[in-house]
Nucleic acid binder design. Structure first.
Lengths: 248, 248
DNA sequence: CGTTTGCTTGATACGTATCAAAGTTGGTGG
DNA sequence: CCACCAACTTTGATACGTATCAAGCAAACG
């Protein structure tokens, strides 16, 4: 069986029709704007497509644009001196990329890497500022997204500070399941984490090494908690995994 | 020598005169407002004082007010099940406390504990929202503060994920020196971190145990990098400490 | 196909947590 | 002023978790 059907999203990126009105309607950031205001906003939006495993921007780049996820998922990676990168977050449709850098003008603090074929909408830095000034609901959207991010990151800090690798990985899997989970027919209650995810990724999300991530995942597999299907992780026993995540 | 002079700020909290106009002028959040707008804002502000080691709010409390630091410092503590608390951040004058909770209405995600005598200004949740809607510069201020916090927290995540305890503590000390450092006459170049700071605090800021924090600090002391003076840390050799922080 | 990329397992060393006990300091009240 | 108490600091012995180094294996890919 060729995995192509599961690897590729069900749209052809190169033929994607950019309907900015539709974009403006479905992106949370623009919720709260009136019909007329949408008319003002849409001309400022630019559509872009990126294939899997490509870079939207690099850590250290000057902040030129804010990106809004439209289709697919990206990971935000923080590079460190010694090849031990850290994945800070995985973002999906509707979420913002690069807001911090855009806002304070400092370079992007992370690299945005696509996990699959991705479509995004960008707004030039200067345009974004004029939107912020003119439309209070947009500020609200930004604040809301930043708050959410801060909460997620705080929880990550807590987990890194006090949890052991096993718990951190369990937590991460459950979080990813929330983000990209679909029910998986084989097992009742089983959840497929529907995104390309290497052990290296898991290691970088949990602040550990590939080998340790593999060992933990193997242990989970042998206990029947998870399984791997075509490079994707299936959580077979969400409840038991949750137990692992919370026993400390 | 009585330590009172160094323990207590140079103002008497109980006699603090709340001049809200002055507050509004010097808090970054209100920068960008006109004279007239200040007049609208100040009636919504309430002054509070807290002695050292008291709680402004607890993790889990319903979000009733946003606080703006005026004098002194607080730490934001995340409690975990097993007595291993995590200090997420130390905040000083001008910074916001509780914005996230206020914004999304979920309970405070951390406990705010005063590190010394503290004066804060509070705004009721509902009042804060009306300010946000009416005055775009305030939204900007909130976004700015959230961005800053997110950057700091991201760096903490990176550090917890890849650095060893020694480096994490070195980094933390340098960060605190930036925040609350004053030059210390004994040594040229030496910096006194002017806040009450137990080894327990250091441990909770770096995701380790008291014992390990103590061992590392002892090592630093024996190498002449730091010293302890009346419960306060002096960085005697900032450059060497920076070297420890960045070698990895 | 060969080559790359990701996965897996094992042996070993190192860092840090944990448990235990004693020393130090600042504050309190007699 | 001293004695005492509680909180904080220190040191040591030991166990455990995880990183590191080294190999081999499987699957994907041009």
């Amino acid at each position: 069986m060729v995995p192509t059907t599961i690897e590729r999203p069900n749209y052809r990126l190169d033929k994607l029709q950019w309907n900015m009105v539709q974009v403006a309607h479905s992106v949370p950031l623009f919720r709260g704007l009136s019909e007329q205001e949408w008319g003002q906003v849409t001309p400022l939006l630019n559509g872009h497509c990126y294939p899997k495993d490509s870079y939207i921007f690099f850590q250290g780049d000057p902040p030129t644009a804010l990106y809004i996820m439209w289709m697919g998922r990206v990971k935000l990676v923080r590079h460190t001196g010694h090849g031990r990168d850290v994945v800070m977050e995985v973002l999906g449709p509707g979420q913002l990329i690069g807001e911090m850098a855009i806002f304070d003008g400092r370079p992007y603090s992370m690299t945005a890497v696509t996990l699959e074929d991705v479509a995004v909408v960008s707004i030039a830095r200067s345009d974004f500022f004029s939107l912020l000034e003119r439309y209070p609901p947009i500020s609200m959207g930004v604040i809301s997204e930043l708050s959410r991010r801060l909460r997620v990151t705080n929880e990550l800090v807590r987990s890194l500070a006090v949890d052991r690798v096993e718990q951190r990985i369990a937590r991460t899997l459950l979080r990813l399941a929330d983000l990209a989970g679909r029910s998986y027919s084989t097992h009742p209650g089983a959840v497929l984490i529907d995104m390309a995810l290497t052990r290296q990724d898991i290691a970088e999300m949990t602040g550990t090494t590939v080998e340790t991530a593999i060992r933990v995942m193997s242990r989970f597999r042998k206990s029947g908690l998870v399984a791997s299907v075509r490079g994707r992780v299936v959580i077979k026993e969400p409840e038991q995994l949750r137990e692992v995540a919370t026993r400390g």
